Amino acid sequence: MKASFYVPLSLGLANGMLAHPLEPESSWPQLLTLVFHSADGQYPMRLPADGREHLTNNAMTVNYIDAPDFTAQKQCTFRTPGKVALVNGIDSRGLQQILVGPPQPVVGVTCSGTCVPTWITCVNPRTGAELGECCSGYCDKGRCQPWLSPAALT
């Protein structure tokens, strides 16, 4: 008798969970990590890609920025006290970087949008449409692949 009570109860709970799907992850701003490097040290910054400026609160002169999990060169704006050139680079480990020239403090960062993480599908298999830019690599064979280390090419 007890078993017949628990089966309908379990099915009812399962149906209730299916009726209320989880909130899609894309409704939240994507989080990204940047690591600012200088000759004297480094500091990390974790921020949402919410379209708002996030102050660094650090006067360190920045030579380059590691951007391991977001297409920061394309989807972020870096506020500096002077004119600056930002150039994409890849280090010897295959890590995506932004070179800052001339080196100077980064006062604030504004990022928006989303990107597709490594090893995740980047092309809709039914339509062939791209699902977004890969965060730290390139789209190949329908999945985001990591950047290759320049050292691996030799």
Rank of each mutant, 00 (worst) to 15 (best):
P125T: 08
V107A: 01
I98W: 02
Y43I: 12
L13Q: 14
E25S: 15
N57H: 08
S4F: 12
T80W: 01
V84I: 12
P105H: 08
L95Y: 02
V106D: 00
D40Y: 13
W147I: 04
D91K: 05
E133V: 05
Q145D: 07
N63Q: 06
P29K: 10
S26P: 07
M17Y: 09
G142D: 13
C115Q: 00
G142Q: 09
C144E: 01
Q42V: 11
A67F: 02
L148R: 04
L148M: 03
A152P: 12
S38Y: 10
A85L: 06
R46G: 08
T154I: 15
S92G: 05
M1W: 09
N58M: 10
F78R: 00
G108H: 00
S27F: 14
L22N: 11
S92D: 06
A72P: 00
C76T: 01
Y6N: 15
F78K: 00
D40N: 14
P117R: 02
L22Q: 11
V107F: 01
S27M: 13
G12Y: 14
G89T: 04
G142F: 09
C134W: 02
V87A: 04
L95D: 02
D66F: 06
M17R: 13
W147Q: 10
P117S: 03
Q97V: 05
L31H: 11
D40I: 05
Y64I: 07
N88H: 05
G16P: 09
W147D: 09
A14S: 15
P146V: 09
D50K: 01
P48E: 10
Q104W: 06
P29L: 10
K83S: 08
N88P: 04
T154N: 15
F78G: 00
W119L: 06
M60I: 06
G101P: 01
L18F: 13
A49V: 02
D66S: 08
T71L: 03
P21L: 05
D91S: 07
R143C: 05
Q73Y: 13
S10G: 15
